[in-house]
Amino acid sequence: MPRIATLTMNPTIDVSYDVTRVQHTHKMRTTNEQYAPGGGGINVARVFKRLGGEAYSFYLAGGATGATLERLLAEFDLGCCRVPIAGTTRIASAVHELETGKEYRFTPSGPLIEEAEWQACLDALSDALPLDALVLSGSLPHGVPADFYARAAKLATAHGTPVVLDSSGEALMAGLEAGGLLLVKPSQGELAALVGRELESAEEIGAEAMRFVETGKARLVAVTMGHLGAVLARAEGVYFLPAPEIEAKSAVGAGDSFVAGMVHALANGRNELDAFCMGMAAGSAAVLSPGTGLANRDDIERLYEQICSCRV
């Protein structure tokens, strides 16, 4: 059984509701209230575990909401290491409007993290190495240096642990500059921001992604393009995979599910293209239902077979 760790510097309590119609000023009565532990690495761990792997989650948490997050993680039976902080863990909300099927998402920026707190996270991570893989996922909260993921990646690779990075902005740039990553998964928009220009086609995206492979920044670069599909850059070249035709109801955790699917396949010795297909299947499965549910194993396996049958 593959054993990985995920690191979530800015976790959330994810709350989702249904409402008949979103209206300003008016009080809106909600139904189908759901709570789940969230944030990039925690979401990856949840889906990785559903696929049969073992995922240990390192995360920062504090305040009354931090205690609630800890209880939610226990309910989801996730192995965890909580690094306590003085700040308060954020709460993110997703509101599903029943009349239109649209989803509205509200995500705070998160607490301020002190140097001693983020350093304690690196120390805890160091004690757990080596691992089958380390997934660094999500945004960095205020107070954490932009090169934090680069520091964590260097620590892990020094212990022979492959590193996966899924972030954005300066954190993504600094992580790539460190180099030697197993997998990087930006979205189309995140890659465009990284290279400083719009990327309209799969060919443009593939060419930019290949630069990171050719310069040794990452062995694999998977760029997700929403309903258009995804591009994988690797030493053998660029591969495009269209997204399966499904009715998307939510975007919560789609990218995290993609990472979980791809990492699980790689950790189990599957080849890179099979892992890419598993990532696409997991990311697509996550959008099938609104709310905080993420990808379900049955949906992932069904979509994987569908994607594999169409692969050329």
Rank of each mutant, 00 (worst) to 15 (best):
I4A: 03
T12Y: 07
D14E: 13
V15K: 09
V15Q: 11
V15T: 12
D18G: 12
V22T: 11
H24N: 12
Y35D: 08
R46G: 00
V47Y: 07
F48I: 10
Y56K: 14
L60W: 05
A61P: 07
G66D: 05
G66T: 00
A67I: 09
T68M: 14
L69G: 03
L72N: 07
L73T: 02
F76C: 11
L78I: 09
C81E: 15
C81D: 14
R82D: 06
T89K: 06
A92Q: 12
S93I: 15
A94S: 12
H96W: 11
E99G: 09
T100Y: 00
T100L: 03
G101C: 01
K102C: 12
E103L: 10
R105L: 12
F106V: 13
F106E: 06
T107K: 05
T107Y: 05
P111E: 03
I113C: 00
E114Q: 15
A116E: 13
A124S: 08
L125S: 00
D127L: 12
V135Q: 04
S137C: 15
G138W: 01
G138T: 02
H142Y: 11
A146F: 03
A146P: 07
D147W: 00
A152K: 01
K154L: 06
L155R: 01
V163A: 05
G169F: 06
G169K: 11
E177D: 14
E177N: 13
G179D: 02
L183Q: 09
K185S: 04
P186V: 01
P186E: 00
G189Q: 14
G189E: 14
L191S: 07
A192D: 00
E200N: 13
E200F: 08
A207H: 10
E208M: 13
A209Q: 04
M210H: 09
R211V: 11
V213S: 08
V213I: 08
E214L: 14
G216V: 06
A218Y: 06
V223G: 08
T224C: 10
H227V: 14
L228G: 03
V231N: 06
L232S: 04
A233T: 02
R234I: 07
V238C: 06
Y239W: 08
A243I: 01
A243N: 02
I246F: 11
E247I: 15
A248E: 13
F258D: 06
V259L: 03
G261N: 02
M262F: 02
G269S: 11
L273A: 10
F276N: 02
G279R: 01
A281N: 00
G283Q: 02
A286W: 06
P290S: 12
L294G: 10
L294W: 10
N296T: 09
D298L: 11
D299F: 05
I300N: 07
E305Q: 15
E305F: 08
Q306L: 15
C308V: 15
S309D: 14
S309N: 13
S309G: 12
C310R: 15
C310N: 14
